[in-house]
Each structure stands twice: as structure tokens, then as C-alpha cells.
Design a protein around this nucleic acid. Structure first.
Lengths: 233, 233
DNA sequence: TATTGAAGAATTGTTCAACAATCCCTATTC
DNA sequence: GAATAGGGATTGTTGAACAATTCTTCAATA
């Protein structure tokens, strides 16, 4: 038994060790760029020059091009043939489509949440708490990130890799809209209490109510975003 | 009026002209590889050597690597660091996840089909007819392709770019399973009449029935595929 | 002043060669 | 059979080069 137990953690360590250093430079560059796009350091419309970025990051143009290919598929960048690569700007139609997509994915996940994997609801709660803590110190960027984690957690209730990945992408994409919004704080501050309420509905097993509340939230959020587009036009 | 009309078709022509020759070699290579993966010329597990493939296609290794980056994101290829790129092999858990994902997407699209865009239902009908014609001449590969078109058309009823793209990907991915199946014909021949029946339900506006029928079909198909995995193990 | 065209500079897309690092395969030894 | 070492093959990355395309600027013209 003692010998078997030792083999288990040795195998675990070997497993974990094998992941160290096993990512390509292209993937790492893509990670760095993705983070900057999501957090707003690279704003929509920004042109990403191969020359400048390659020099800044200390990688060759070919490696950078590979990283660009990874990110264009995530719809964070848009690749214009012979003109270069840009951080994507979303249109009102994009916003409508994003919310239609989210309604399909997020509401289905809540619908299936009676069979959520172990720990999935904990992730939802953690995201609620993360947002509330950030709001206490007026860190609205982190509130935005926590809200994204909340909705990622909602989709995680379905226990599906492909749904998780779809959510990851579309929630990242939606961040692009927020970075050009005039009133980011106003948009997010009403959602903290709403997220808490949704979590409570889920925790107490009131799935149909949670689904209704989520759909209502998505409708309101979509309308607010579209209104924000009109204000800035 | 005559002057306005001229400007319209001039603008249309300019629009169309700007698309000619505006794809990169990397994108074209990815298209060629994607088709071969979907149609089964490149089977799951196949290793795609940069050297061999670059020579065969007459492109440089860098260009090929860009193409690989495009396809790994579509889950058709899997990129193993320092070992190369392989056509993906799906596991039984993958199949379960794919069907969970399809149930979410396809059933939601049918649910929303009262507001389908103009021509969307025609695409569904065309796919049904394509499959029936192919079966008449025992062209079961085209039956498989037509079935994919049918389900792509189902999702098209939602009129959402992001749902369309999600469907395109997951249906392509599912093709990988069929290429290693022993009895491809048996799997597909019962679905032609079912697709016709589903189309009729949609055409006559019986949306709830169509949704129920689709969910039932997806359950059956999933079970059959999982059974086929057990038979081959 | 506004528009058009030409020229030059900047950039992208692709190829090629080179090299370091890693993996795979084979042969040898215990 | 298992472990090890060596050699070859391949991947990951860099950098240079060049053709093609786009962008910017300036001059000429209406």
C-alpha cells in the first residue's frame, strides 16, 4: 500500500513536470496578446505591425504570424490580407449575434445544471465573491473580469468541454465591446447583486427560475450595450 | 433613378472583384487539408509531416505551419509539441461531448426557427434532396456530406453567424468518427427518411414536434456511434 | 480648393537556409 | 525483456531575401 501510494504521486509529479516548457513560443505569444486584448491594453482597431511587435517581443516574424493565426480564429484579431492584423471592432450586429449565442449556450447550461460536475457551482460562487470584493475597492476592471468568470462558471455547469471553449471565446470577444464603452462602471455595478441572486437560485435548486433570470439579464445587457452604441454614434 | 441604379451595381462589382485573389496561401492550404480530412483521404491518426506535405503541396514549411495553426483550432488536427501534427482521433468521451453540444445548438436553432431568415428552410430541403439523390446511386460518401449539410441547414434556421460557425466545426469534427466506422452505410441509410420527416415538420410549422424529433434522432445517433466504438474495441 | 496620378517608402506574404533542441528508431549490453 | 547510447530525422525558431501590395506624400491639373 505504501509502495502503491508512492507510485501515484511520483506519476503525478512526472505528469506535471512534463507540462513545463511544453508550449511553443507561438502559443506563448498568443497568450500574451490575448491577455492584452482582453484587458484592454490593445484596443479595438489597433493595428499589430509584425515588425514592431516582433521587435518588442523578441520573436521572429514567422513566429508572430503563427500566433496571429491562433488569435484570428478566436475572433479577437482580424486578419486583413496584405493590410495586416487588427484588434477586432465589434458592430451592433455582432453584439446581437453574441447575445443570441450566449442565450443558447448559457441558458442550456443552466437547464442541464441538475447534473453539474462536482465543484462547478463552487466556481460560480467564487466568481460572485471575486466581483463583490473587487467592487469594494472600486477595481472595476477586475469586476469585469469576475463577471466573465461568473458566466464562464455558468456554462461550466453543463460539464462540456466544447461548451466551455465556446463560452471562453465569446466572453473574451465581448470584452472588446466594453473597452470602447464610455460607462463601464455603470454597466457592471448592477450585475453584482444579480449574479449573487442567480447563484442563490442555482444553489437552492430553482433551476427554472435561474434560467428565466439569466435570460432576462441577457436581454437587458444586450439592450444596454446596443444603447451604448447609439450614444457613441 | 437610373444614375442611382448604376452606382449600385458598380459598387456590387467592386465588392465582388475585391474578393478575387484575396486569400493567402496558408488559408488555401488549410482549405485543401480540411477537405481531405472531412472527406476521409486523411484518416484519424495520420501524421502530417511538414517536410513531406510541404514538398507535395509546393509550399514552404513556414506557410504550412500557419495552415496547421488554422486547422488545429478547428479541432480537426492535433498539434503535439515537438512531435508534429496529427489528424485527430475522437474518443468516446469526445463523441458524448459532441452530441451534447449538438443538442444545445441544433435544438435551440429549431426552437428559434419561426424567425428563420429567408431561404434558410430551402437550404434544409436542398440537403434532404441531395442525400436522397446520392442514396439512389449508392454514393454513401455524398450521403454523409448531405447529412452534414442538412444539420448545417438546421442550425442556419437560427440566422446566427456564430451558431453557423460552431455547427460547421462540430459537424466537420464528427466526420472524423465516421471515417473509422466499419458500417458507414448502415449508419446513414435510416436517416434519409428521418431528415425528410423533420423537414416536413418544419415546413408545416410544427416546431415543437420537429424539436422533439431532432432530440430523439441525436440521442439515437449518439448511442449508435458509441456502440460502434465498443464493437471496434 | 479638390481631385488625380505618380513615385517612393513601408509592409506583408512567402521562400529558403541554417541551427538548436527534441524525439524516434536501432543496436548493444546486461 | 529492460535499459542505455548513438545516430538520424524532425520540429521549432530565427533571420535574410525578394516579390507583391498597400500606404503616404507630392506635384500637376481642373
Amino acid at each position: 500500500m505504501s509502495m502503491t501510494s508512492r507510485r501515484d504521486w511520483v506519476a503525478d509529479l512526472a505528469n506535471e513536470r512534463s507540462l513545463i516548457g511544453r508550449s511553443s513560443t507561438a502559443a506563448r505569444v498568443a497568450d500574451a496578446l490575448r491577455t492584452r486584448v482582453i484587458e484592454g491594453a490593445l484596443l479595438p482597431g489597433t493595428r499589430l505591425s509584425e515588425e514592431d511587435l516582433g521587435a518588442a517581443l523578441g520573436v521572429s516574424r514567422n513566429t508572430l504570424r503563427e500566433a496571429f493565426r491562433l488569435l484570428t480564429h478566436e475572433r479577437l484579431l482580424v486578419h486583413e490580407f496584405n493590410r495586416g492584423v487588427f484588434v477586432r471592432t465589434l458592430t451592433p450586429d455582432d453584439v446581437r449575434d453574441v447575445y443570441q449565442y450566449r442565450r443558447v449556450i448559457e441558458c442550456a447550461a443552466v437547464h442541464q445544471s441538475a447534473h453539474a460536475p462536482a465543484g462547478a457551482l463552487d466556481a460560480v460562487r467564487a466568481a460572485v465573491e471575486e466581483g463583490e470584493a473587487a467592487a469594494l475597492v472600486d477595481d472595476w476592471s477586475t469586476v469585469g473580469t469576475a463577471n466573465m468568470h461568473f458566466h464562464q462558471g455558468i456554462v461550466g455547469l453543463a460539464g462540456s468541454q466544447r461548451l466551455d471553449e465556446a463560452a471562453r471565446q465569446v466572453l473574451a470577444e465581448l470584452r472588446l465591446v466594453f473597452h470602447v464603452m464610455a460607462d463601464f462602471q455603470r454597466f457592471h455595478e448592477s450585475y453584482l447583486t444579480q449574479n449573487r441572486a442567480m447563484y442563490q437560485l442555482l444553489r437552492t435548486g430553482r433551476i427554472a427560475d435561474a434560467e428565466t433570470e439569466l435570460a432576462r439579464y441577457l436581454d437587458v445587457a444586450e439592450r444596454q450595450l446596443l444603447d451604448a452604441f447609439r450614444e457613441s454614434a
